[in-house]
Amino acid sequence: MEADHEVAPPNLADIDVSAWRELETAATSPQSGFRFLNLCSVDSEARPQARMVVLRRADGPSRVLEFHTDSRSPKWRELSTKPHVTVLGFSTQTRLQFRLQGTVELHAPGSDQANAAWDKLSPWTRTTYTGGPPGDECGFEMIDEAVLPKPQDDAKGKPHFGLLIFRARTLDWFQLRRQGNRRALLTYDETGALAACRWVNP
């Protein structure tokens, strides 16, 4: 059987194309290892904050990832003042880790961009924005899985629906292998073009 270390390393430009293809696939495939990503921000006291978010859209040529959030959430306030974030993902299927750094653009409820994204959501997904502000205290008696939100109430969530557009400036690509882990650092310019790439120590 051929060992991992005997396989020639892939071309860095090919790694870039493949990584973004993985992300584009993840945005439409619930089974993808990169469907849920870790969005890391910094709060007002300079403490790192991380949470899992659903990848809603990815565009390789522009280096863009799209996420949705409740505009009443703490992360919305954090990103409003400190838009520099890290997005981290790991796929157990491919044994790949992507760590992307860049900035987030916030599109508030009622904006053209947020409205367009809202219109594509299912009624069930829309109901997730109809409850109270994220992080507020909630009595346990309010948590009842047998009582589902009514589809006709989904419009109540629209005033809270915010859109996050993440633009990557770097991609730290890591491949976990039985022998000889591989890591590459890719940098993008303002237009999204690949500006530099190099192998680095894992």
Rank of each mutant, 00 (worst) to 15 (best):
E78V: 13
W173M: 02
G157Q: 05
N11E: 13
P202I: 05
G33Y: 06
D189L: 01
A168D: 09
P9C: 04
S32V: 01
S111G: 13
E145R: 08
S62R: 14
N181P: 12
H160C: 00
I143L: 14
A116K: 09
D136A: 08
G180T: 00
D16I: 04
S44P: 07
A195P: 13
R99E: 00
T103E: 09
G89T: 05
P151R: 05
R21Y: 03
P202S: 13
M142D: 11
G131V: 00
R198S: 05
R56L: 02
D189E: 00
T69I: 09
H5W: 07
K150Y: 10
E145Y: 13
T25P: 08
C40R: 01
H68A: 14
F98G: 00
G33V: 11
K150C: 15
C40T: 10
M52H: 01
A50P: 14
D119G: 12
R177D: 07
R47Q: 12
P133L: 02
D4M: 13
H107Y: 14
D172N: 11
K158H: 03
V42T: 15
R182I: 15
P123L: 01
A50K: 09
G131K: 11
R182K: 15
A195M: 04
V147Y: 00
A155I: 08
Q31N: 13
D16N: 13
L171T: 09
E24G: 10
A116G: 04
P48G: 06
R198M: 10
R21L: 01
R183N: 07
T92E: 04
G60I: 05
H68R: 07
W199C: 11
F174Y: 03
P123E: 02
H84K: 15
G162R: 06
L194Q: 12
P149L: 03
T69E: 05
L12W: 05
T187R: 11
N201A: 15
E190R: 06
H5S: 10
T25K: 13
R56F: 03
D144F: 02
Q97C: 04
R72K: 10
Q113I: 14
Q152A: 13
A117H: 01
G192I: 01
D172M: 11
F90K: 02
G102A: 07
V42Y: 08
V42S: 06
L79W: 08
T28S: 15
Q152C: 12
N38R: 10
L23W: 07
L23C: 04
Q93W: 03
R47H: 12
W173H: 04
A3W: 00
D154E: 15
S71G: 04
F161I: 06
R95N: 04
L148P: 03
P9S: 06
A108Q: 13
V42D: 00
E2Y: 09
I165W: 02
R51G: 04
G132R: 03
H68K: 09
R178Q: 10
H68D: 12
V53M: 02
P10N: 09
F36H: 15
A108P: 02
E22W: 09
L121N: 01
R77Q: 07
G157V: 10
